[in-house]
Nucleic acid binder design. Structure first.
Lengths: 205, 205
DNA sequence: TGTACATCAGTGAACGCGCGTTCACTGATGTAC
DNA sequence: TGTACATCAGTGAACGCGCGTTCACTGATGTAC
């Protein structure tokens, strides 16, 4: 549990590095699904004494917010990297697959993104991940419509619908891992196609 | 916080009533969004000494499971009661509205329904709410298809899709209360119509 | 080149608190004789 | 009708624990002279 050899303290002038180590330690605890994220548990995981946290963060919520922001960045990066295919429908599909895959790979990080937000400051501080993800979807659906592959007359509205639906599928996959229908790629495909009003070139079946 | 006059103990033979009072107290705490649901907090809310809980429940998880089961029953009842309209599309829409409305009225109860399940026993003990809700959707979509109002060739698959999507909309509404697009009835209507493959008699607009 | 001092990056002990859990108990109410 | 006893529905005190937070401290490393 605790590291065998004691942590080597950062060199003079490198004190800020502990800040990153604290955030990474917290992310590990979140990934492990710990129920109670405490300051002392974070300090233990980072290999540091409890009070050392205070030089870098005011409290656990501040650390959690930092992790949340990182996770949003990760997710957005993942969506951008998936957005490479030339065919607009393939691209939309890849973006949505990447979205769901992130939630599947890191269910606790994903849950953190959409956890109840206590204060308005937290909301405005880290709440931009949703709109950024949404923007990628809007662009993608706009591309499908421009290519005549979607009958969407309002890509923004349809992107919101796609977002809500793949969010639902992602969280259901986490809470019902035994429900094969929900885990199926086919289900994801159908949901996205319908909400994005994709016009199939050749109807399936 | 604590009741003014001390709780009157149950009459002889009525000891089991405290069990219900404990569950109700826990539900109040959950509705209030308390972060840490502790045995002592539940006892305080129920107006009872901490150890008194042990006569009725082994631990907090057992109480939470009981609350979870009740909430599933509530939700299913609410869906059934909404399922009255003669027109099958109106009926499906009413069921989905009731679903989302439950999550809106009791966001913390709804979150409890879909929270991570620790043990398989808990899952099988209270996990039947999902399938029951799903069954109502399957029947409703089947009704739409039979009336020629849905082009669904597989009501079960489409019901799963509808379920995942309205689940996503419900949780997004809770975590993004300021996002008006998500709160809109129009968005809910569009999502359900598309996933249930509803054939509009007269195209909108 | 020495040396005194300042600063940096943390540590260890201590505090008061709420927690889960145990244990012997209490007082009201029913029941056997 | 009395009375001793059993049972029921809890209670209060106590325990050991982990928590957040404070405070004075430590020891390594840079810097001024």
């Amino acid at each position: 549990m605790s590291p065998v050899e004691p942590r080597q303290r950062n060199a003079r002038g490198q004190g800020g590095r502990l800040s990153t180590e604290i955030v990474e330690a917290t992310q590990r605890l979140i990934d492990d699904g710990v129920d109670a994220l405490t300051l002392r548990a974070i300090a233990r995981e980072a290999g540091v004494a409890g009070p050392s946290i205070y030089d870098h963060f005011a409290n656990v919520d501040a650390i959690r917010d930092e992790v949340r922001g990182r996770c949003f960045d990760e997710l957005i990066t993942s969506l951008s990297e998936a957005s490479t295919a030339a065919d607009p429908v393939t691209r939309l599909q890849a973006i949505c697959s990447a979205y769901v895959a992130y939630g599947e790979a890191y269910p606790h990080r994903y849950a953190l993104l959409y956890s109840f937000v206590r204060t308005r400051e937290q909301n405005t501080a880290t709440g931009h991940g949703g709109p950024r993800a949404l923007h990628i979807l809007v662009e993608s659906i706009t591309g499908c419509a421009a290519a005549g592959r979607s009958s969407s007359s309002n890509p923004y509205d349809d992107a919101v619908a796609v977002w809500a639906c793949i969010h639902g599928l992602t969280t259901l996959r986490a809470s019902r891992p035994d429900f094969s229908q929900i885990q199926s790629d086919e289900t994801l495909r159908d949901i996205v196609h319908r909400q994005a009003r994709i016009v199939d070139l050749q109807p399936r079946r």
